[in-house]
Design a protein around this nucleic acid. Sequence first.
DNA 1: GGAGCGCTGTATCGTATGTTACGTATTTTG
DNA 2: CAAAATACGTAACATACGATACAGCGCTCC
Lengths: 274, 274
Amino acid sequence: MISNIAELIADRIGTMPAGERRAAQTLIASYPMIGLKTVAEFSAAAGVSSPTILRFVARLGFQNYPEFQSSLQDELAAQLQSPATRTLNPPSPGGTGSPMLEATLDNMRETFRHLSDKQLADIATRLAERRGKTFLIGGRFTDPLARYMAAHLAVIQPDVFHLAGQESMWRDRLIDMGKRDVLVIFDIRRYQDSLVRFAEKAHQRGVQIVLFTDQWLSPIARFARHVIAGRTAVPSAWDSSAALFVVAETLIGAVTRQLEADGARRIREMEGLR
Amino acid sequence: MISNIAELIADRIGTMPAGERRAAQTLIASYPMIGLKTVAEFSAAAGVSSPTILRFVARLGFQNYPEFQSSLQDELAAQLQSPATRTLNPPSPGGTGSPMLEATLDNMRETFRHLSDKQLADIATRLAERRGKTFLIGGRFTDPLARYMAAHLAVIQPDVFHLAGQESMWRDRLIDMGKRDVLVIFDIRRYQDSLVRFAEKAHQRGVQIVLFTDQWLSPIARFARHVIAGRTAVPSAWDSSAALFVVAETLIGAVTRQLEADGARRIREMEGLR
DNA sequence: GGAGCGCTGTATCGTATGTTACGTATTTTG
DNA sequence: CAAAATACGTAACATACGATACAGCGCTCC
């Protein structure tokens, strides 16, 4: 079975005329970057004319040049999205035996690779400088994450509320929300209409939204001030929220650090109350 | 120093207007592939208009869109040409930048190293062969994990109950519990007396207890049929439940697989009801 | 509450890009 | 060695892509 374009070329290069063979060799030499550039650049690099490049991709079975480029891009995307595949051949330090765990660890590394320290710091600062209230809510499976985060934040600062129960209950809380407030939403596939509606309402009231979602971005991203896109794919019937969970913990830690002066006193007080 | 476009975006995203920020977040979420496609596709994915995309790349300092794309391609080429740099830098010397993440990843590896496949399989089997009911409960900060697990298990089998609310509420549920039932408890430091008391009562009634705890083992371990000890130490004011979270997800996956025949039908039915 | 500013989308434009037709060169075959 | 077939490049073409002008809108700040 031929799965990628490089193999396809290797398979058919024998039947190609001289010019197209030069095109093939040029592409293989710096695969696949040249193929992502324009026909003119490709042809110049190969030392042939534009039509030769087009005949080349036609011989590979593509209807036109853009289709060929899309195919290359899909291939690249697949490589980039699953670092596991890359490290699959040499089972480097992994070898834990559990593909589930390996995928989860990869997800976390990927998630944090796309997440700058600055972005996290910004969100943490926004949550720490508590000019207003903080609301948290989640979807069917992600609401526990909202609860987890709320449980921690509520310890180190006042005015932290988890929105539970029916949709109608949340909407009643909208009346309390304004420009100075922050709404943290967890929403991954399949995205819940009720959450989207709620986010829109809150956005209209000027509430700043922090969204935890998957890499395909919940429609709530339209209204969000900050978006955290985590990786959720694992070899299971379910999506994994573990990466988002770790981001949430990191954020909790960052907020705690920023509130250290205030927070430490608060925590001591609370301990005293128990 | 800013070396790649992702950092550049993180640096300037704070100063961007709403539309351009959505473009930025969309690009980051599936970096960098969207940026290699046409302006029209990019704008559609971000839910903004084409000019907004162009203003976005202009704000990043590029003269025009093709120049922006070339820059992305160069970046990609650099990554692909030296896979060594990519797999050498981050993993071993903790180059991810976040000590929090590194500690969490270590915790997971350690947790699974001390956790045999057989042990997981045993617990999964016990949860899957549903002769009785399944109850889940957690402590102050770990109860969300119980909820998370309950939310999933409830989809694939009946008689799954999360014990919420006041301690007195749980105790009333004891009357429903017997030898054929399973109680999943999450309890990490500081261990809660109320949970210990409850676990003891349940144990006396013959309930099989599955305990998720930290490496120092909650006193509930005395009564537990199965104990999962996760690592919780991270450089933060709080303990991390991430490792236990991943174990929970793994367990959910295992139970789902065992119930595949039954479960698949149930899930389809549920989807139909939505 | 009103005026000014900044952001965003619609519609239009110019152009670079992929595509195709055709003539010339090169190789192959009888 | 001649004739035909195939391959290749030049040049003209059409399309789709990026770029821009402009108007509507919301927002902030007096």
